[in-house]
Design a binder for these strands. Structure first.
Lengths: 337, 337
DNA sequence: CAGAAAAATGTAAGGGTTTTCAATACCGCG
DNA sequence: CGCGGTATTGAAAACCCTTACATTTTTCTG
């Protein structure tokens, strides 16, 4: 059985084209690769042969010859598509421009599948690896640093200082937000601490802590969703049915919605009694009622930039900066006063 | 520059292993591929050499030799990740089991990028193509049928009858739903007709029409969002601020939310004045308030099955059925009486 | 128009596997 | 011990390309 089922037509290779055009295969190769040494006349003949035979270069053979595959592996947390939508779009659009293919992998955060993925990346000879790591622990990520694979961390700071990273400075965002509230004398502030997204959440906690410290106070306000809790919505519901706070900060829209729903159901008015801020905006933060106050995050750019950096890395360019922080904008809506 | 940056260690290939183990490369190949003709003793020696050298087979070379890449291309509509989350999960999990890699492509519905994608698929020698096609027009899909690529349509019926398809029988779902309402004497029913998802929407319209016809009535109730409308939320808002209906059927959660928000803002009570049903459930249909009545759709299974079928296709098994319809369950929540 | 330089093209050696077919090693038996 | 046969192993072609280097053709100079 040949490629593509039982098609029995003989394959058309660079040889067929060469024969058809009456040149050597080297010349055909040069035409394909847009080398400018080929005479205009010959080039035309070859191109006609290519069209006539419907020849398409075999990327696998090219990959073998060139020792690169123009494909890069993308690893995202299992079940994350609903919130990394735009990131992936940015990534894919940029990949398309540079003719890279994206091989998609998911890893369940918590279960250390990194070794398995690395294995695959090495076998498949992907040229590089982009890791969307807002849900992976330092330990999981550490696994990656043993390998000499061009890598970009996307969505968070890289701990091992070898790889590039592009992310939003959530630490600063939260710092500014919390400071503002502390200035107003509001200090009953909690951060929803979802242990399934440790790296990102740690930034939030850090930002909040700093702000508190600077105001001579100690930050202790986190609601920790234990790692083994399956239904975090239920967990939060349960908590907020019995606890009140002045300001609740969440990372994901779904958590903000859980908090808001629960408060409303328990006659806690939003924003009068409790204010809620979601760190990352999503298409739903604006569709939900009340509209959820959040930071507006350039997700598309995040993905696009990560891919751009990857291409630079792969083309051998020296990438001087290791950390790329993208800006965010705070947008107060209806869940804050 | 070698594979993976400036690592200068000589590559370890099947030759290195052969040398290390004192056998020929053919034997190493046999060990790798778990051929059972190799003597136990030799096999052990080879395996030790593999471990010692850290050898990983080069999938590119294998691909060339075997004329297959164990990778399959997945095409999804641009910007669809927020709603095909689970489908992709099912697909990837299954792909992992069968050791297939997924190459991810997006195509903007409406702009005919299929040719470009086909080109890529052929160049990259992906073994097959899975098309999530709830947003592609028949014309776009037609392009694909010219090529002898093993293909599975996911999320919708295939028009060209060559390829397999796995989908939810939305037509029947809507038929049943509408019939139920008509039986109750409710006939001011509209379907949100988003021209950006023609194939799926057409099924809805068909299902509704049938039900009406059977009741001796003519169905004319669609609110068509023109293709050139960017912000469909706004469009729907505008419409529902000035029009009332007894039952509104939408395909996506975001459309249902738009309708509900607008109705509420215009003092149209839900579900008392207007009922709303969303065809596909999502994590948000249950988080939104009021909870949105919807069909519960086995999205994960949809993806998993598509991939399973693909593996069957590729292993040369005869796939007798062409159409795989998956079941759905209707779940009345708070937007219906 | 010869000869040198430049331009265009061709030859052949990889790149790392799989697999067919041939060669060798090993077995049991007479 | 020799033979037929089977179990292992090896040699080499094939998969389809790129590219350094060699060769041929073209162009230019005097």
């Amino acid at each position: 059985m040949g490629q593509y089922g039982n098609v029995e037509k003989k394959r058309v290779t660079i040889y067929s084209v060469a024969k058809e055009a009456g040149v050597s295969l080297a010349t055909v190769s040069r035409v394909i690769n847009e080398s400018d040494v080929v005479k205009e006349n010959t080039k035309k003949r070859v191109q006609e042969a290519i069209v006539k035979l419907g020849y398409k270069p075999n990327a696998v053979a090219q990959g073998l010859a060139l020792k690169k595959t123009t494909s890069i592996a993308l690893v995202v947390p299992d079940g994350s598509f609903n919130y990394i939508d735009k990131v992936i779009n940015g990534l894919l659009d940029t990949a398309k421009i540079y003719k890279y293919n994206i091989i998609l992998h998911t890893a369940t955060a918590g279960i250390n599948e990194m070794n398995e993925i690395i294995d695959n990346v090495i076998k498949s000879r992907a040229d590089g690896l982009i890791l969307y790591n807002d849900a992976f622990s330092a330990k999981e990520i550490e696994t990656l640093n043993h390998f000499q694979i061009p890598m970009v961390y996307l969505g968070n700071k890289s701990e091992g200082d070898t790889a590039c990273c592009v992310y939003i400075d959530y630490e600063k965002a939260v710092y500014e937000l919390v400071s503002r509230y502390l200035d107003k004398g509001i200090d009953d502030i909690v951060v929803i601490d979802d242990r399934k997204n440790p790296t990102s959440i740690d930034l939030l906690l850090k930002g909040a802590s700093e702000a508190f410290e600077e105001h001579g106070k100690r930050f202790g306000g986190f609601v920790t969703i234990p790692e083994d809790v399956h239904n975090s919505y239920e967990y939060l519901s349960n908590y907020f049915a019995h606890n009140r706070h002045q300001l609740v900060i969440t990372y994901r829209d779904s958590q903000a919605i859980a908090v808001i729903n629960t408060c409303t159901e328990n006659n806690i008015r939003i924003p009068e009694d409790t204010e809620v801020v979601c760190i990352k905006d999503s298409r739903y933060t604006d569709m939900f009622r009340p509209r959820i106050s959040s930071f507006i995050v350039p997700s598309y750019d995040l993905g696009a930039l990560a891919m751009r950096i990857m291409t630079k890395l792969l083309s051998g360019d020296i990438v001087r900066d290791k950390e790329f922080k993208l800006n965010y904008v705070y947008k107060a809506k209806e869940t804050t006063k």
